[in-house]
Design a protein around this nucleic acid. Structure first.
Lengths: 251, 251
DNA sequence: CGAACGGTTGATTTGTATCAAGAATCGTGG
DNA sequence: CCACGATTCTTGATACAAATCAACCGTTCG
């Protein structure tokens, strides 16, 4: 069942046709001939949990798509305070075309497979292939909306609302990725430590722990493992997020 | 000196060549023939201070660019909690192509002139005119970076750091706009009420008031009027923001 | 004039951080 | 396979920053 089993380490041989993220990634709108060009350029790289993918300020030689695993996009202040500014899930794009140096830290949270391209040739392709640029724009606008939704969460939501929102969003994205995925996934892995969740939500890990267990105690979710969650009451969870009942949620 | 004096109310006659934002707006890369198409499509609309431009959930008939004035992009929860998620200045784009309904509230803060296009024809143009789509992508990516910088402020900074950051950023932007503007402006108008600042910073207006007066008491700034600020000690202010001394600040 | 608005200041509450201790869980090497 | 140290997570006690509640001041404007 490991969807990534087809993707062996450091191989370029994989066919885009077999790619689990082909219909959501930056290449989603590409036609077969265009995919052949990408196939010739790409290489896979696997990062272990906790491994840095790039640091803020580093030169950005590669850009690419997360094929599997979870990575975090974050900023750290001098005194150590840290804020995640993006959660990178399969199909998400890493790196900013048109910029030579990274603006944020990117770290693998779980094991991550990255389908990567050298930045400069990729930028050229972005100019030449409308399908690529079109999808890139769409993804950038979606991320901008998501970032703005997150600003509401960080600025105005309570700890419980923050946790509920995070669980709800991860469940949604999980469902999107699954074959028949119409609705929200009922059972899934958070793939984040309490600390990573805290960094994402602007909380401490202790508060995260308390709130997660609070949701469990109140029958909103079950905890199977530490990070394995089952949603008992989706409507209730949605209510706990503080968001509008009718899905005006980030997409 | 009023740069917008050329732009009379509800007129379509204005030439893009006279436009004060032509080299920064979404049309920045367009050539003359392309501008002619835009010129034929566009119309101006003026909004008074406090007037809504669009509400979240409304159908989005128009998209467009801020020609002059300041508008705010914000979200409000059912119970009234409000978070500003963007400050829209001249050349910024309003509306999201590829989406039929607005995701956020947009309100004019001062008098605002909007250069607008019907959404559907504009979307078609976005597909047909590479220069337009290219600039749109660039602007979206810049806004995304700015939103992510703001997430650090909202998630991790103290009230004093938030206020200091806001004052510092407004001062910077003010300096950018001025003729010789190399360094940070020493004296300027905040142009925001305490409440607007609170909505932007994820604070209450009382906390904003206390922190502003705290900075004054500590000799970091002077208050000339309520919103008129003079920076007494720029280095000290920068320190108070909590940011890295070497300007890794939001752009 | 009085009402509305924007701002300040004070008293009190409260949600979350912080400090601290321990319990699970995981990985690794003996 | 077990023992260990290192993580990760939980739980409790306490501290504190900012929210909330409340009163009041100065301007502006109809």
């Amino acid at each position: 069942m490991n969807v990534g089993a087809n993707f062996s380490k450091n191989s370029n041989k994989e066919k885009c046709g077999d790619c689990p993220i082909q219909h959501r990634a930056v290449c989603a709108y590409c036609e077969k001939t265009e995919l052949l060009i990408l196939e010739a350029m790409k290489s896979y790289k696997i990062y272990g949990p906790g491994e840095p993918i790039i640091w803020a300020g580093d030169e950005m030689r590669y850009v690419g798509s997360i094929v599997q695993g979870v990575a975090s996009l974050s900023q750290t202040m001098e005194d150590g305070r840290k804020q995640m500014v993006g959660l990178l899930l399969p199909s998400d794009f890493v790196g900013r075309p048109g910029r030579s140096h990274a603006a944020f830290d990117v770290e693998a949270t779980s094991e991550v497979t990255l389908c990567r391209f050298e930045r400069k040739p990729f930028e050229k392709l972005l100019n030449d292939v409308p399908h690529l640029r079109q999808r890139m724009l769409e993804m950038a606008l979606d991320e901008l909306d998501a970032a703005r939704e997150w600003m509401l969460l960080l600025g105005r939501k309570t700890a419980r609302e923050k946790i509920s929102s995070l669980i709800y969003i991860i469940a949604q994205r999980e469902a999107d990725l699954r074959p028949g995925g119409g609705s929200v996934a009922v059972e899934f892995d958070l793939k984040l430590t309490r600390e990573a969740m805290a960094d994402y939500l602007g909380l401490t890990l202790e508060t995260v722990s308390r709130q997660v267990n609070g949701l469990k105690k109140d029958g909103v979710i079950d905890l199977l493992g530490k990070r394995q969650v089952r949603i008992r009451d989706i409507a209730r969870l949605l209510q706990e997020t503080g968001d509008d009942a009718d899905g005006a949620m980030p997409s």
